[in-house]
């Protein structure tokens, strides 16, 4: 006679990946990945209860408003959506957030920032893209600068970063520029990711694994 024991049947979200696997590939510990899973479950069920983060849910979490969008939130969502299927799965969430971990190598942050700013996926940051991003920031911040000043800022930046002078910033030029100007990577690190379980005790779950 067959014997089946079912002490705990844990139903995970679609796209769930084992914390031990994700911890081995990222800057997070196993218990931190488990804590992130608690956060992920909240975010991914805030509107559509399918265990996947849709863009509206991402916007709701970022802005407290499901309909508010901005250029950078769209870009970050697209970069988190590694499979390019319009939703963020748990593994994608953890791997992408890991870029922002203080212990993640600077080179990874530089590469991620380049992809973020390469709006049209041409492999370069082009002048028009940079201007578009500056205008988006100004619009978002309710700051007004005349077109002339925006042109000055963009021109000045290209003078410093576009070493070949071909009107576009390639990944090597970006890397060099970012290393010379560390403040550019400030938004690529979230200090509290270093110990999520301390910073966000509400996400702490009883881990069965000792890190």
């Amino acid at each position: 006679m067959g014997c089946f024991t079912s002490k705990h049947v844990i139903k995970h979200t679609p796209g769930y990946e084992e914390p031990t696997v994700l911890a081995s590939e990222t800057s997070f510990t196993v218990s931190e990945v488990e804590a992130l899973y608690e956060l992920f479950k909240k975010l991914s069920s805030s509107i559509i209860k399918d265990g996947l983060i849709h863009k509206e849910e991402f916007q709701l979490a970022l802005f407290r408003n499901r309909n508010k969008r901005n250029l950078f939130a769209d870009r970050i969502f697209d970069l988190f959506d590694l499979k390019r299927n319009g939703v963020i799965e748990f593994g994608e969430f953890v791997r992408s957030l890991s870029i922002f971990h203080p212990n993640t190598p600077e080179a990874d942050k530089i590469a991620f920032a380049f992809k973020l700013y390469d709006l049209r996926h041409t492999g370069y940051i082009e002048r028009e893209e940079l201007k578009e991003m500056v205008l988006a920031i100004l619009n978002e911040s309710d700051l007004f600068l005349s077109n002339e000043f925006v042109e000055i800022i963009v021109d000045k930046t290209f003078t410093q970063a576009d070493l070949k002078g071909d009107g576009k910033i390639n990944p090597d030029e970006w890397e060099e520029f970012a290393k010379k100007n560390p403040s550019l990577l400030k938004n690529m690190t979230l200090p509290y990711l270093k110990d999520i379980t301390m910073a966000f005790p509400s996400f702490v779950v009883n881990s069965e694994v000792d890190d």
Partner: peptide, 26 residues
Amino acid sequence: EQPTSMNAFELISMSQGLNLGNLFDH
């Protein structure tokens, strides 16, 4: 610091639109 004294990427990196911290504020 005046916006015009920064380079464009510095301006962008200060953007609240890039602040992922709100994801954790639940």
